[in-house]
Amino acid sequence: MGKKIMFYPGCTLKGVAKNLEDSTIESARILGYDFVELPNWTCCGAVYGLAQDSVKFTIANVRNLIKAQQYGKEIGDNRLVAVCSMCYNNLRRAHIDVMKNRDKLHTLNIFMDEEPDYEGNINVLHYLQFLKDDVGFDNIAKKVKTPLKGLKVAPYYGCLLLRPDEVAIDDREDPHIMENLLKTLGAEVVDYPLKNECCGSYHTVDKREYVAERTYKLVSIAKEVGADVIATSCPLCFFNLDRRQEIAKQKHGDFEHMPIVYFTQLMAIAFGLKSEDVLHFDRHYISPREVLAPWL
């Protein structure tokens, strides 16, 4: 049994992004960590409320933080790891927000009088941060069984791992954390200039043509710089870049498909976890099976 670490999966990992959840938990297991799902977690809200005069979008996140506070005491660890970029962003922003605005925290504590007060000591981490700072890339290198030698990956961070500044896991204009991880796995990392650009986000629901235009640009430039796959950590980025290739192809004759993967799937493959139970390639619109075949 590995060391217990609190894990916040979020809604999407429980459904369409099973490939992200399983590859995360299983890759962590290889590294000696037992990712335990936070008991009774609730939805993070996906986007953080920006209205200064409202606390309604902060409630659910603080409730999650309180749950982590309780469970963290039980297992003796205050780290709460999320892998979905949106979940990470929301939980981290909520934590910073209420720590900066104590009045807000007070209001929320009173509102949630059925819960204990939030004490402010939950360390919300993205899985990439956990891998870099707590596990260490040296230790990850030791677990690599199938180096991804020759695989050209475009690391794609999107927005919510890097913006706004207070939640950035790395330099917002030129991040390298995912590059360094992918290199540790033996992959070749391409210099992908659009790695911190937006995929179009929630517009995929009602303006999917716009999102398809973003996908066209993001995937085409990745192709241009020589990538075989794009690696991401956000299920919404994943969906937009993967699924919206359908419309992109319809609109642009020159468009060429490219598979999108989660960085955790690449980690799993490098660690030798190659079964469909972990990778769930059936969840991909553009199957990465062919591109990844040499390492599978």
């Binding site: 369409v16 809200g45 996906a46 986007v47 009602d206 299920p235």
Partner: peptide, 16 residues
């Protein structure tokens, strides 16, 4: 596309 959209797409869209 309700069946294929990820929950975060719907949640964030409706929130905004």
């Amino acid at each position: 596309e309700r069946d294929i959209l990820p929950p975060i797409a719907l949640v964030s869209n409706f929130r905004k």
